[in-house]
Design a protein around this nucleic acid. Structure first.
Lengths: 343, 343
DNA sequence: TTGAAAGCGCTAACAG
DNA sequence: CTGTTAGCGCTTTCAA
């Protein structure tokens, strides 16, 4: 039962009409008589007609597809986003295709190139340093773009992300209020605004709390470190501190490796070391005694991003209202940061 | 600096040649003189020429894109797969686009429909009951398809997945050899061959170990249960057993909720209850005392799947050599299943 | 070695 | 209300 794909022309032939008529009926344009309409619809239905997106795309210049370029496919953060973006896009008649950059600039460029070959109408992109030019090109070509999870300082492209500065600030402030005074900071050695903002929040919160910043308490893990290597590096970092009583991890990923490090060092949480990690995760909920986290508003971010994109795509005029959208995070308090009574 | 997309025709005009010539040069077909070639290449380069995939697709009937339809985007299992599939596909000149079904039949149908509208040349699909017809249709239309993570019993479509039966059998056998005798089994209430195969492995291993199967030790969690509801159900199940000494979870997802249940019941692992879960996961490595798991060979599965697909796509003739590929899993032994000396 | 021209499936102005 | 027709950008046959 090989159903050769049937075309609009075939339907026209089968129904003794013209392709225009068929096209109109199928698209509900022009006014075609009831009976002819019905005949055409019947034949189309019976033969399982499906429009050829390529042809439509070529003709109209729109593909009705949105490209979602993320750092890693997989991973709960983008997984959750993907779901809501997909749903919203579908409501508006758009499909979504994903591509991942794996934090590799070249891969990022390749992916943008591939998608820009008329495959997608709009983009949601996790930006990374090195892609500025490509992304600006997209915008210059009047392609709708929304950045998520990051942005390019000084470049006006619509973006939506968590309030990295504020939520880090709050997390550190919370630690200080709970009685912790020697707070370590572990981040990745990547040039990402998100991470810089988180660091600034940390520094400012310390200052506001009257604590002197100590460079030795800040550790930047090389991005390309192997798992084991990374864990060892974190262990070394922790061991070198003499009286660190709390530690803040700037990402999910780092937090998990941090837990392993702390575990291997046999340090008690929070007795010997309090812990907070950015990005909530199942593991932080489960791992005893529960790890306090900064939970990103994934739903809101995704929803805002797709909304901004869709409005860009449908608006007749350029009307980029909110260029910057920073959404606050929630601090999820768990057992890893109990208030210090000894003090 | 709006660069209007330049076409092959523009290049022809700019170089005083014909579109044929340009096309030939750009594709390295026909023999065009060195100088004209150079001129064309230069102009194309300078103007940032990019072929229009839609046009090529329309003309040639191939899109050079592979569709990957999975249950959930996000989640470590598919995340890892996606990465290797992407890499291999790229080597062969294919792009990859993802779509998720979220275990929803209608969504699955919609996604297949969307992709089948000439958007992709081949499919890698996580099958689910209810999609048999759509997928058979694809095959009937001579579209290359490879199923992963599952298959349709009785329907001959190439597929590759872990040896669900064998690896469950081994896991249970391992428990028995370690001295456990009352082994519970928690699975999801979904009609998936994977799960059925895992259950059969459990039953057969019990029988082989001389242990009588006990229906009351098998629990099927309703698929649509909310998180909390699910945890409670598992807690109830565990509490009702009088002397269960080990428990096997058939998925990652269940295993994690199982841990939470066990945690809330304050049962000691493995002292009061040994634990094994299907699908390895970071959390199982970290959660004390380490949870023994059946690790799926994600790399091999993904690699085989994309290889099978690519060979289907490039082969002149239908030459589906290995229709069924079942790859063994690895049992990762951790602290949750120490050998019982008391006994 | 190069060019003219047909046509992939579809939309949409323009005619009737 | 319905049909004719001209492309969208590209590949490819055939002819020059």
């Amino acid at each position: 039962m090989i159903k050769k794909k049937i075309s609009i022309k075939d339907i026209a032939r089968l129904t003794n009409t013209s392709i225009t008529t068929v096209s109109f009926v199928l698209n509900g344009k022009g006014r075609i008589s009831k009976e002819i309409s019905k005949k055409i619809l019947d034949v189309a239905q019976k033969n399982g007609y499906e429009p050829n997106r390529m042809a439509i795309g070529l003709r109209t210049g729109v593909s009705k597809v949105i490209g979602l370029i993320v750092e890693t496919i997989g991973g709960p953060f983008f997984g959750a986003m993907a779901k809501v973006i997909e749903e919203e896009a579908e409501k508006a008649g758009y499909g979504v295709i994903y591509c991942s950059t794996n934090n590799n600039i070249q891969k990022g460029k390749d992916v943008i190139k591939m998608l820009s070959q008329q495959l997608v109408d709009g983009y949601i992109i996790t930006p990374m340093k090195g892609l500025e030019k490509e992304i600006q090109n997209l915008v210059a070509n009047e392609k709708p773009v929304v950045l998520i999870d990051g942005y390019f300082p000084g470049i006006d492209i619509p973006h939506v992300l968590v309030d990295n500065y504020g939520s880090s600030y709050n997390a550190i402030e919370f630690l200080i209020k709970s009685g912790y005074k020697n707070i370590g900071f572990v981040t990745a050695d990547l040039e990402l605004v998100q991470l810089n903002d988180r660091m600034q929040g940390y520094k400012d919160a310390l200052k506001a709390g009257g604590i002197k910043e100590d460079k030795k308490k800040i550790f930047k893990l090389p991005f390309d470190a192997e798992r084991e290597e990374a864990v060892n590096a974190i262990k070394t970092f922790i061991s070198q501190q003499n009286q660190m009583d709390a530690i803040f991890f700037t990402t999910n990923y780092l937090g998990i490796m941090g837990l392993q490090s702390i575990n291997e060092l046999k340090l008690n949480i929070p007795g010997e070391l309090a812990v907070i990690s950015f990005d909530d995760n199942e593991i932080f909920n489960l791992y005893p005694p529960g790890i306090t986290t900064v939970r990103q508003p994934t739903y809101e971010i995704a929803k805002s991003a797709i909304d901004m994109l869709l409005s860009q795509m449908t608006a007749e005029k350029y009307n980029i209202a909110k260029i910057k959208l920073q959404i606050p995070a929630t601090l999820i308090e768990r057992g890893s940061t109990t208030t210090l009574v000894t003090k």
